[in-house]
């Protein structure tokens, strides 16, 4: 019973906090600069991959806004160089480095971000692409090593120890059998 109750309480708390968070975010966008927008697109020029952000206000391009391009990572977002200022077309373009690690398929999440300012407020666009370098985790977890688990002991070590133990204990058991024999000889 306690278990269920606890889960219900947790669930409630979780959904409450989520709800609060959502409403906060919405209201922030609503109240300040709903007309300012940022869109993120990906393109390629001279075989250089580029991320392009377009900043508009009331559907008109906005010039002179600093846009930071970032790649989302576990413990923070990695900036792709310095901030890029939008041109007359409201465009800011950043070259996408060729060596950003992605997931195992090379997927990365790119962010285009405008820091809080009077003109636009805080703007953020997020988009995923497969431009990253696919990463595979080199896992030595199941290798037979000296630091491995008991099951992953190096074969040579296991064979050595087992054969030595078998040899010596074989002799010990033989000795015990001789004691039994001595005992039997005495009975006769």
């Amino acid at each position: 019973m306690k278990l269920k109750l606890n889960h219900i309480i947790r669930g409630l708390a979780l959904s409450c906090s989520f709800f609060v968070l959502c409403t906060q975010r919405l209201s922030a966008q609503d109240s300040t600069n709903a007309e300012a927008q940022i869109t993120l697109t990906f393109g390629e020029q001279d075989s250089v991959k580029q991320a392009k952000a377009v900043v508009t206000k009331n559907h008109a391009p906005l010039k002179g806004v600093d846009v930071i391009f970032l790649v989302k990572k576990s413990f923070g977002s990695l900036p792709l160089g310095d901030a890029v200022t939008t041109d007359d077309n409201g465009e800011a373009v950043a070259d996408f480095p060729t060596d950003i690690p992605g997931d195992h398929e090379g997927n990365v999440t790119v962010l285009a971000k405008v820091e809080e300012n009077d003109q636009t407020g805080e703007l953020l666009a997020t988009k995923s692409t497969n431009w990253g370098v696919p990463t595979t985790v080199k896992d030595r977890f199941d290798q037979r090593t000296l630091w491995g688990t008991a099951e992953n002991a190096p074969i040579t070590l296991v064979v050595t120890v087992v054969s030595l133990v078998a040899l010596v204990w074989g002799i010990i058991i033989y000795m015990l059998s001789q004691l039994v024999k001595i005992n039997r000889l005495g009975k006769a």
């Binding site: 010596v168 000795m175 004691l179 001595i182 005992n183 039997r184 000889l185 005495g186």
Partner: peptide, 28 residues
């Protein structure tokens, strides 16, 4: 005493055991 009677066979056995163990105990 394991029914020790001091027969020749018994002595042969313990001499054998002592020799084997004496060799075994050195590396151990």
């Amino acid at each position: 005493a394991l029914n020790w009677r001091g027969t020749a066979q018994q002595y042969t056995l313990i001499h054998k055991c002592i020799n084997v163990l004496a060799v075994l105990v050195v590396p151990l």
